[in-house]
Every structure is written in structure tokens, then in C-alpha cells.
Simulated assay, not measured.
Amino acid sequence: MKRAEMARRGAEQLIQAENAVEAALCEVTALASTLGRMRLESNLSMVIGQEAMGALVETITMLSNARGAMVKAHGALDTVKTQIGCGAVAGGTWDKTGSDPSTTTGFHVVGDSRSAA
């Protein structure tokens, strides 16, 4: 497999993983918020659901730590990309060279002319 292909596939998977962690964090925080608002609107004691809320807060903390770890992994993979001789990896659906944004999709890796061993 060419190194440019390795970098492109890795970048695509990295973005999917980052988005999955972020989406999970958003969903759990939304759940905690919804449950808190429902408790307030129903005039229920804070005792009701405290164990569940504590578990959700713990989950939010873990997901926040996972998010930070993904940021570190992203940086480390940027170093790997350079080590294997690839330049910039551009992602998304818009060609930044000025062509029609609707005609460009995916990733482009700059600077690789070698194949992986």
C-alpha cells in the first residue's frame, strides 16, 4: 500500500473516531441536562435520580478524557505522517484551490512518492 493511501485512510478513520467520541459526549450531556430539567419541572427532590446523575457525570468525565486522548493521538499521528514522508493531508469536501466545491470530495495527501515496505 502506498504511504499516501495509508495517510488518507488513517485520516478518514481518525476523523470518524473523533466524531464518535464527540457525539457520545454530546448525547450524554444532553441526557444529563434533560433529566435535570425534567426533575426541576416536576418539582422532584434532588434525591430522586442522584445515583443516575452521578453515573452520567462520571461518564461525561470519562468521555472528556477520551476526547483529550483523541487530540493527543491526532498529534501523534501527524508526526507519523511526517515520518513516513507524507506532507499535508487535506480533508473534507471542498477543494481549496478554487475549483467548484461540489466537485471535490475526500482526502488528498501531498508529498508522497514512495510505497510502504
Rank of each mutant, 00 (worst) to 15 (best):
K2S: 12
K2P: 12
K2N: 15
A4C: 09
E5P: 11
E5N: 05
A7W: 01
R8W: 04
R9A: 06
G10L: 12
A11V: 02
E12G: 00
Q13P: 03
L14W: 05
L14R: 06
L14T: 09
I15M: 11
E18T: 03
N19D: 15
A20R: 13
V21Y: 00
V21E: 06
E22I: 03
A23H: 02
A23P: 10
L25T: 11
L25C: 00
L25D: 03
C26A: 10
C26V: 14
E27M: 04
E27L: 06
V28G: 07
T29H: 03
T29Q: 14
A30H: 09
L31W: 09
L31E: 15
A32K: 14
A32R: 14
S33W: 12
L35E: 13
R37C: 08
R37E: 14
R37A: 06
R37S: 08
M38A: 14
M38Q: 15
R39Y: 05
R39D: 00
L40V: 04
L40Q: 05
E41G: 02
E41Y: 00
S42P: 08
N43M: 09
L44E: 03
S45V: 04
V47C: 11
G49Q: 07
G49Y: 01
E51C: 01
E51G: 10
E51K: 12
E51I: 07
M53L: 10
M53T: 10
G54F: 05
G54I: 09
A55F: 06
A55N: 13
L56N: 09
L56I: 14
V57Y: 15
E58I: 13
T61Y: 08
N65A: 13
N65H: 14
N65R: 08
N65P: 06
A66T: 01
R67M: 05
R67I: 01
R67P: 04
A69T: 15
M70W: 06
M70P: 02
V71W: 07
V71G: 11
V71N: 13
A73V: 14
A73E: 08
H74G: 07
G75K: 07
G75V: 10
G75Q: 11
G75A: 09
A76G: 07
L77M: 04
D78I: 02
T79A: 00
T79Y: 07
V80S: 07
V80K: 08
K81H: 00
K81P: 00
T82F: 04
Q83L: 12
G87T: 02
A88D: 00
A90K: 10
G91M: 10
G92H: 02
T93P: 01
T93D: 10
G98F: 01
S99H: 05
S99C: 05
D100H: 05
T105I: 12
G106R: 00
G106D: 09
F107P: 07
F107E: 00
H108N: 10
G111A: 07
S113C: 13
R114Y: 13
R114Q: 04
A116S: 11
A116V: 11
A116E: 14
A117R: 14
